[in-house]
Nucleic acid binder design. Structure first.
Lengths: 333, 333
DNA sequence: CTGAAAGCGCTAACAG
DNA sequence: CTGTTAGCGCTTTCAG
């Protein structure tokens, strides 16, 4: 049995002919090693835990795809847990990961406190992607290691500058979930408006309740009633719903009102009008996050936190005939 | 140690005060049992494997959400593997599941042969959801147990009848991946046209290459050139892309051409025009699939195969002013 | 009711 | 190079 183990693990010290016999026997018997037993002795399970807030969201689907790909390439299997943005569900999922002794875990959009999670998971590494605990607003308080972020503020700034260049003057922000990225995006918009155009530019905030029936219609009505001519949406899902609601009110986008989303989900370029948005490299972030856990496992310590660049993708929902200046940097046609 | 085990597993034969002491100690020590060790002795891992073809697809995201929810409710953790519609990747993912000794596995949209999978996974139960092995076309060859299907043919039939009632006469089918559901949907359309309108009605098939750049534009061009007035799409993703491509050609939907999709992904109702489609209860199917594996585990044998009803959701992409008859059953406004 | 002992399937240290 | 032995963390007899 020890020889079989060594042969299968490609230890050099097995005779070639012995190894051949082992391989043959394994094949005819259809033997597949039991990882639970292996893990008991090597103290590693070759599994990674991945906690997502909502499997239904296209952005997370892409993230999962990238993550799973990278993990599988290194022979790791991935557990997924759906946290549904609720602290109790997230904790429960993490506990399951611990019971399974996942070698490392990655949390995307988690609402939990990072220190709490690290303590719970210790000594396994925890990687945070776009952490959403409200205390993280502004992203200054992300831990120094093991955190991955899209640079939301830069994206929003680019979006605001673009909209200003397009001649927009009355800015709305639709969001209000109160999560870190919601707060951060809104703040970034406020700062960008101040910087660009003095204190006169106000940003009016509208609360969106995703999923609530009729809420998009109300949102569109309020924005229209207030005479806004640009709306920055928390994410593409919201932006696309808003597009539909504005259409229902016969408000023309982008002529009467420009709409910008966030994420660049696959559907963004297919909507009508196509959606201007801040693109996050979701698949790439998934791959990168998996790579970070694996690195932590290999090195025995967490890699430094990183902030990934985003890019403004200008499309039909904001592209009116240009009044003064051309659109700013980083845009694809 | 034995007593602790018994206390934690709620064996009746432990003294209440002893149990209390155990619980207290467990809490202060932060002890969490090791499932790998448990599974070694109880020969069950409390894990389920889930193989999906593409984590990026909204329909699969919804399925995963339902599946994970049901599994978590029964204290099972789920492994996901991304098969990318390639037999070799699927086999690799299944092998990982076997190594982890997942108690049961579910395959959605798998291109593998069901018997091969069952053999590979034996004795663990395998549940097939919308199996896509080409030999499954028509769905007559699904195994008698452990298969779950949406009733694609019924959905397509309803769609065709609806389009005929709307006055459409020149039908196109866009698809051609060659998978079971692709073939089945196309065949169902052909039969529905024959039955409804004699042999004169032809269904013209167009090959769509999802993801290939420019392919949607070519598809739209071909359909337009042939003067089609209705197109049944393999799925919503394709339908929504086609909508964008038709728009780019300034073809008006639904006036010049009606478009119908399949799945009812969340964006179907948000597209412009909103998309008429055959709705699959994706989340529910995920829950149901998980319930089927769990039942198989409980009963020791596979539950009977089932076919779930679908419903035609009529929306803007097919709703021209009605020429003769009102739209058929099962529609939402 | 509780402790001691065996053993789940495997890897690693140790002889030979 | 290969077999023997111990032991990973747990559950389940088996005694007491």
């Amino acid at each position: 049995v020890a020889t079989v183990s060594r042969a299968l693990l490609n230890y050099p010290q097995v005779n070639a002919s012995t190894r051949a016999r082992v391989v043959r026997a394994v094949r005819t018997l259809g033997y597949i090693p039991n990882r639970a037993a292996q893990s008991l002795v090597v103290r590693a399970t070759q599994t990674l835990g991945l906690l997502i807030p909502d499997a239904t969201d296209p952005m997370h689907g892409q993230f999962v795809a990238g993550f799973e790909e990278e993990a599988a390439a290194h022979d790791y299997t991935v557990f997924v847990g759906n946290g549904r943005k609720r602290a109790d569900r997230e904790r429960r999922a993490l506990e399951l990961f611990v019971m399974q002794r996942a070698d490392g875990v990655t949390l995307i959009g988690s609402v939990l406190r990072q220190r709490e999670v690290r303590a719970l998971l210790r000594p396994s590494p925890a990687i945070f992607v776009n952490g959403e605990h409200p205390g993280l607003a502004g992203y200054r308080t992300d831990l120094a290691t093991g955190c991955l972020r899209a640079d939301d503020a830069a994206g929003v700034t680019a979006a605001v500058e673009h909209l200003l260049a397009m001649g927009c003057r009355r800015f709305a922000y639709a969001g209000g979930l109160g999560t870190a990225s919601d707060i951060t995006r809104r703040q970034a918009a406020i700062h960008a408006l101040r910087r660009a155009a003095g204190r006169l530019r106000r940003l009016r905030t509208y609360a969106a309740m995703p999923g609530a029936p009729g809420s998009d219609a109300e949102l569109a009505a309020a924005i229209a009633a207030d005479g806004m001519d640009a709306v920055l949406c928390y994410d593409d899902k919201l932006a696309v719903s808003l597009l539909a609601a504005l259409r229902a009110r016969r408000l023309s986008v982008p002529d009467q009102i420009a709409v910008v989303g966030f994420d660049d989900i696959p559907f963004a370029k297919l909507s009508n009008p196509s959606l201007t948005t801040v693109a996050q490299p979701s698949v790439e972030m998934g791959r990168r996050a998996a790579a970070m856990v694996l690195e932590a496992l290999r090195m025995g310590r967490l890699p430094a936190s990183a902030r990934l660049p985003v890019s403004l993708v200008i499309r039909g929902s904001s592209a009116r005939s240009i009044p003064h200046a051309p659109a700013p940097s980083r845009a694809r046609p």
